[in-house]
Amino acid sequence: MSTTPALKDWPLWEVFIRSKQGLEHKHCGSLHAADAGQALDMARDVYTRRQEGVSIWVVPSAMITANNPDDKGELFDPAADKIYRHPTFYEIPEEVGHM
């Protein structure tokens, strides 16, 4: 009998939950599961027990390409002093309401 812990055998999945119709799916955590169907069922049990969701996506963590945290400086810092990119210099007409 294999004694390999399941956590080593099973791929990791990232879980995205949509909390209500019209909102976007948000990343809420990850879990181990043998396949996509099981990952969905487990996500249902682990992340929607308190009515947190109306829709679940699961994505194999291995399919996500992430930036290297060490590149943070060159990737993100140059945006810091370009406040003119924020649309804060316009006056929004009242009729527009909340944007």
């Binding site: 399941a6 956590l7 879990l31 181990h32 599961a33 487990m42 049990d45 682990v46 027990r49």
Partner: peptide
């Protein structure tokens, strides 16, 4: 596993 623990409790 943790996920099954929760599933069975549910």
């Amino acid at each position: 596993i943790l996920e099954e623990d929760i599933a069975l409790a549910n």
